[in-house]
Design a protein around this nucleic acid. Structure first.
Lengths: 256, 256
DNA sequence: TAATTTAGTATCATATATGATATTTTATAT
DNA sequence: ATATAAAATATCATATATGATACTAAATTA
């Protein structure tokens, strides 16, 4: 797909470097970066120098291993404090965590990707979603994803599904489009979505939509838990619970 | 100082854009960015497009206001989890917070700047330091800064002080180099540093050094509080307390 | 509805960032 | 100490990203 595109190679390369470093657990040497990305030596040296000067990455040790810089901590935190949703939802998340003892998750949509923006881990100690800030593309496997699908215009929804398809992730993943559409309309009726091991074997979720002052979907709050403490029957009362809290958060966001 | 320098204008401009957006509380329009930075219109458009495509910034609304993107949340969190110091120190910070009820601060050095990497706010509810990830240049006004100075070779220390000088921040700020050097040697003797309203009127701190497996200074932990609950005399037992905790964290970091 | 402001695109000559190559510097290994 | 490898810098012809100018599109305002 050679759609005509802007080219700012220096910038794109720099972003590649940042991604590469972020991806690796351990710090990277100059050569490792050089060999992983297709950037000529002097160009890479220049990019690394600028990024280092500006604190985006840091060179540690004498031999010069590169790692992410403190500036990113600052930028991440800066963003976080700007996220109103998070601050409004926070006390309600705590309330839910206290009441249920389960994992509470707050997510939002950014550039057509589902992003986990905050999380309180439950007693079970099982990592249920993933890292804060991480994106997840398989909407049909996630209660929150289904909520977003349910709120789209039918045409846009079909578009999205055409693009990513309905790949199987676990043996419970919904792979039939009619079944999915059926479920989406139920979501709008019930006010919450249920996810039964469709993303991960042994994990269930209920998730409810949060609206902003324009009554448009701005985020989702969910309760997640391993199945041993979240039976199929629990979905009803937990669903009601999460729906009620979502409504309170919505009013906190200015929805009327 | 026109020291010869590398030039990667596209990248430097992009970083300027990011900084500008991070700095503002509210989101920025195309023109606002255009007028704030010296970047030609088409170049700015290209840069904004790439940054948006890669999730570093986000365009909200139809009129297109730019704000920081979720990718930065991811990168910030990625860095955070890499910061071993933070994870090792965390339980000890909690312990200190519980025992003292005061604000506990964890800081480190990055590119010759003092960075606050974590904080537990005390009961007093007074913002004592600043935002997580933010940097502070005036070493001589901060207990943690004095610890770093104390650990430098004398030559390097004098270099640093020559560069930034000893500007007055409050009427308690140490502005005499001999007095400062005296204090630095006391710090090495006592194992902790004391800061008596030198950065901010009405705020006292005690801070102790944390060492890594190479026995080099890797961070500082501190107790901070308004003076009404932190008398001049308190500095001794709080100092001992923070020193002991710092030693425990150091062993956690592998120092022997 | 027309007028005005703002966002974003198109074009293309040219200033300039880039990269092939080689060298120097620095750190690790023998 | 010497050898070896990796990191960082220097040079400079040239491919190419850039920006002056002008334009369209879209949204707000009168």
């Amino acid at each position: 797909m050679p759609t005509k595109k802007y080219h700012v190679p220096a910038l794109e390369r720099a972003l590649d470097v940042i991604d590469l470093i972020a991806l690796h657990e351990s710090d990277l040497s100059f050569s490792e970066i050089l060999n992983s990305l297709n950037i000529p030596r002097p160009s890479l040296a220049r990019i690394l120098k600028i990024l280092t000067d500006r604190g985006i990455i840091t060179k540690t040790g004498k031999r010069g291993l590169y790692s992410l810089g403190m500036k990113l901590l600052y930028l991440g935190n800066r963003l976080e404090s700007k996220l109103k949703l998070k601050s409004v939802a926070w006390p309600f998340m705590q309330e839910l965590a206290l009441k249920t003892g389960k994992t509470i998750e707050l997510s939002t949509l950014d550039r057509d990707q589902l992003i986990l923006i905050d999380q309180i881990e439950g007693n079970e100690g099982v990592r249920l979603f993933s890292r804060i800030g991480s994106a997840y593309p398989y909407f049909h496997t996630l209660a929150a994803g289904k909520i977003y699908l349910a709120h789209m215009e039918k045409e846009k929804m079909k578009d999205v599904l055409r693009k990513i398809g309905l790949p199987t992730v676990t043996k419970h993943t919904i792979t039939d489009i009619d079944q999915l559409e059926e479920e989406l309309s139920n979501i709008m009726k019930n006010g919450y979505a249920f996810e039964d091991q469709e993303l991960r074997e042994g994990v269930r979720r209920v998730v409810a939509p949060i609206y902003d002052s324009h009554r448009s979907l701005t985020g989702c709050i969910g309760i997640a838990s391993p199945i041993f403490s979240f039976t199929y029957e629990d979905r009803e009362y937990l669903g009601r619970m999460v729906k009620e809290v979502a409504e309170k958060i919505s009013s906190g966001m200015g929805a009327k």
